[in-house]
Simulated assay, not measured.
Amino acid sequence: MTELERLAAHLQQFAEARDWEQFHTPKNLAMALAGEVGELVAEFQWLTAEESSAPDPPTLARISAELGDVTNYLVRLADVLGVDLVQAAEAKLASSERRYPPDLYRGSARKAPPDPHP
């Protein structure tokens, strides 16, 4: 069992013990995930580029907590939907590798056309 699978199982047990599975619909989990991403973004909102690269310990602790929330909701959502999160991420990376060949995009932030083979 991978670390991600262990986390998914722990989150499932956590929800079951509290009878929260009834609330863990994909819609609700996606909305909760979006809210937590917003809380993560808020931690960076007024930081300079330099501050965001090396946050002070209290800020880093808050960022870490928000990353934990984002991860938990993302893993729970994927588990409820039966999506292999690592496989989905690898597939997306493969798509990005096709869309952004290094010889054409190195050092560039421009957007590529949509991948015809998602």
Rank of each mutant, 00 (worst) to 15 (best):
A112T: 09
R110F: 13
R98K: 11
V37P: 02
D79V: 00
K92G: 00
S96L: 13
L60Y: 14
A17K: 13
E97Q: 14
E90M: 13
Q45E: 15
H10S: 14
N72V: 02
G35E: 12
N72R: 11
R62H: 03
T48S: 15
G35T: 05
V80F: 02
L93N: 13
A42M: 07
Q12C: 04
A17E: 10
P114K: 11
A78Q: 01
L29N: 01
E5S: 10
E50G: 08
K111P: 00
S108T: 14
A32F: 08
A61V: 10
P113S: 12
W20G: 15
P26G: 08
E97I: 15
T2L: 01
Y100F: 14
A15D: 04
P55R: 00
P113G: 10
V41P: 00
P116I: 06
S108L: 14
W46G: 09
D115L: 00
R6G: 10
E39S: 03
D19K: 14
G68D: 02
E90R: 13
L74M: 09
W46M: 11
A34Y: 11
F14N: 09
R98W: 05
P55K: 07
T2K: 11
L104A: 14
P101H: 02
P26N: 04
K92M: 07
E3R: 07
N28A: 04
A42Q: 11
P57L: 04
A34C: 03
P58K: 06
R6H: 13
E36L: 07
P102Y: 10
P58I: 02
A61F: 05
E3N: 13
D69E: 07
A15N: 05
F23Q: 13
P118M: 07
R98L: 06
G68Q: 03
A30M: 13
N72I: 03
F14G: 01
Q12Y: 08
H117L: 08
Y73A: 04
R6T: 12
H24D: 10
E51K: 14
R99N: 01
P118F: 11
A32K: 09
N72Y: 05
V70A: 03
T48Q: 08
P113C: 00
P58V: 05
D103E: 15
A89W: 07
P114L: 11
D56P: 05
P57G: 06
K27C: 02
L4Q: 09
L81R: 13
